[in-house]
Write a protein that binds this DNA or RNA. Structure first.
Length: 277
DNA sequence: CTCCAGGCGTTCC
DNA sequence: GGAACGCATGGA
């Protein structure tokens, strides 16, 4: 077994906490190893750690890896300014920003976000991670990473024509046919990811909801974490209850425009830290 | 054993 | 348009 010894400092970033971001429920292909995190995204796999505000990459590092990670963790955006705007005149959001201030909104691959959030419905995170891992093992190529082999997330092509029955080894239950439907509608051109990326918010959301098993919650998460649509404000029972507890009633998503999605992530993290539900 | 998990589709009214 | 209820699976 070879141990990665090269370490590169990617940069130093305010308003960024690697562990917080990974644990904020946006992605499922990561694991803690010592004080570091093995993070897989698409066909890539990295070993990352953080000391203070500095982010470190362990293992071989090419310029494109730095670029990828800067984009993946949305490190070029000024979250400090966003937090100040969200916090102004809103004590609850201000508290959420303080608690979850290191959370970034990930810029994941759109197809990967779609499939993983289909798998997330009425499910818990440890089990989602297992199902996603099984999906990669069965349908993604085996590659060598900075700390041993891993499997890439399958491309739409790798899953083309897959049936719910063929997905049975994932133990995804009723979600298997939803994944199969998503793959089929993409292959047939009935759903366009290009449209999901480019179209106005309501149209993009409607495009995703053509897929069986994609409702408002999943669609919003896909738009937020897979298309960087920061105005997407996921509607979900859990956070709705938490927001109700925090705010004493429902809140208007437009109130946090145009960064409602970021506001939602802060609130989600904060509410969970507080044990609210 | 029951209950729950970052929901959604179906079936009622 | 909204409120029940079932759904696969596995862990607590």
């Amino acid at each position: 077994m070879n141990i990665a010894i090269n370490t590169t400092c990617i940069g130093s970033y305010a308003d960024f906490d690697l562990a917080q971001t990974l644990h904020s429920g946006q992605c499922f292909r990561f694991e803690e190893r010592g004080g570091a995190f093995r993070v897989c995204a698409g066909a890539r796999c990295y070993l990352l750690s953080q000391r203070g505000s500095s982010l470190f990459l362990h293992g071989e590092a090419a310029a494109q890896d730095i670029d990828f990670l800067t984009r993946y963790f949305d490190l070029a955006r000024d979250y400090g300014a966003i937090k100040r705007a969200l916090s102004a005149g809103d004590p609850v959001m201000a508290e959420a920003c303080r608690c979850a201030g290191g959370v970034r909104v990930l810029r994941q691959d759109l197809f990967e976000a779609l499939v993983t959030f289909i798998l997330s419905q009425n499910n818990n995170i440890p089990r989602i991670k297992k199902i996603v891992e099984a999906l990669c093992e069965h349908f993604g190529p085996r590659l060598e990473g900075p700390c041993g082999p891993y499997h890439a997330f399958p491309t739409p092509g790798a899953l083309a024509g897959v049936t719910a029955q063929e997905l049975e080894p994932l133990r995804a239950g009723f979600r298997a046919r939803y994944v199969a439907d998503a793959v089929e509608k993409l292959a047939r051109g009935e759903v366009s990811l290009e449209l999901v990326r480019e179209a106005p918010y309501e149209q993009a959301k409607a495009e995703l909801m053509k897929i069986r098993g994609v409702g408002e919650k999943v669609a919003n998460c896909v738009l937020l974490f897979g298309a960087n649509r920061l105005d997407a404000f996921p509607v979900d029972v859990w956070i709705a209850r938490a927001i109700d507890r925090l705010y004493g009633g429902e809140i208007d998503a437009g109130r946090f425009s145009p960064h409602g999605g970021i506001a939602q992530q802060y609130l989600f993290f904060y509410a969970r830290e507080q044990g609210l539900k």
